[in-house]
Design a protein around this nucleic acid. Sequence first.
DNA 1: CGCGGCATTGAACATCCTCAATCCTCGTGG
DNA 2: CCACGAGGATTGAGGATGTTCAATGCCGCG
Lengths: 250, 250
Amino acid sequence: MMRAAPRPVESHALQRLSALAPLDAMSIGTIRLALGQTLHVRARRDILTEGTPITNPRMIVSGWAARVRLLGDGRRQILSFLLPGDLIGVCNQPSPLAVSTVTAITEIGVCPLPPACEAPALAQAYTMSLALESAYLLDQIARLGRLSAQERIYSLLLEIHERLQLNGMAEAGAFDVPLTQEMMADALGLTSVHVNRMLQIARRQGDLQWRNGRVKLINPAELARQIGRSPARVSAVQLRDRFRLNRSQS
Amino acid sequence: MMRAAPRPVESHALQRLSALAPLDAMSIGTIRLALGQTLHVRARRDILTEGTPITNPRMIVSGWAARVRLLGDGRRQILSFLLPGDLIGVCNQPSPLAVSTVTAITEIGVCPLPPACEAPALAQAYTMSLALESAYLLDQIARLGRLSAQERIYSLLLEIHERLQLNGMAEAGAFDVPLTQEMMADALGLTSVHVNRMLQIARRQGDLQWRNGRVKLINPAELARQIGRSPARVSAVQLRDRFRLNRSQS
DNA sequence: CGCGGCATTGAACATCCTCAATCCTCGTGG
DNA sequence: CCACGAGGATTGAGGATGTTCAATGCCGCG
């Protein structure tokens, strides 16, 4: 499913962390060390199971994963997507349990969380990451609770766009999205049939293109305005490098 | 709206914290000190505004608040409810911004967060509290995404029941809920009209009673089974005192 | 008594779902 | 090179679940 990546794939996680906090050489060294221990997990494999003790915090290096909740009767809700640079199982409780199952969507690279004990900048980045993660969870709640199907789709794609920009995986509104319509549906509280229909409308209206797993938002800013979405902000300190790659667009 | 409480009202926050982690005398002293500085906020007042810098972390002492997201056109989503013992604006970022507006639902008592720097047990309790909070956010996502209106109502009431048990505000499946049907609707992604209809069915089926702001779940365990809900668990260490007050029931 | 806020009701309607068939694409094996 | 199979996308028809709008009831309070 995943072909060889066109560029050094580990760089995305590093780019994200260094966008979350200014990293010193020490931190970067620690990160590289951890990246060297990256292991790969096949698509569809669980890498964490709800209710299970969390042994080791990790970081997504490449590929996409999803936090999932299963309901006894087969219904499934994707709580959030995990992209390169996102953290897994980070918390400082004594005997933490996973609060959700995490499943690999594509084949993914996962490395142990670079230890932050001697790198305050890293700890800083993790704090920001957690804050962002929880902000996106709140967005997801508002999305499911109060947006129409069409709006939910735009909102989710805009979020993904925003997050992929942070780690350098999006350019000029275009980015890879290895999701089936059914996964979109499971994330958005819809059925795949309905997602399909709404996507067709979106394409017909010229709001986006979606071919071969690649999405292009024709006018992200306008879309965001239209559904009243503003980028997630969790700190008065500006995230670095954001939108750097997208100056060209409008 | 709020009458004088029948019992020492500050005890609920304390009870919650000590259920989250075993507190030493030092911690309890710190808490009492903070409780002494409790200020009151009128119902409907905002105590935090989305996008605004967070100045001081606080704790709910009495009453209910809600984390809210407003959509430009008047749509409103309640992200979560804040009950006595819940924390507000806790995070260790440098310049944190509020990610959601917090509004008082009833008149509430709020005190500064008891400082945990010299009380590791307190820090522990806060960590648990944050973990629980995020677990409940995930529940909320699954609720909005994949449950029917009827199931959402049961699920939310069960969550509230569970949380009120933790801080000693529920007994034998009965507890005060100062919510209008419209607030329920805003939390559940429904309209108040529909909440009304579903509640009538629930009452008619003998699943619950709801009079004068007091809810009684006739058979919480059976309800939970029916919608496939299990209590939130974030740590392998058992929360203390849970259900202590409810041995009588079934 | 009259007012305000909330709960309740009805009828018409929109959105989204279900079920099932069909199409498309792509990789496999003959 | 082509038939085949699998997974995903697309389509249609009918139906369920929730919404909208507007009226009415209820109840505590000044």
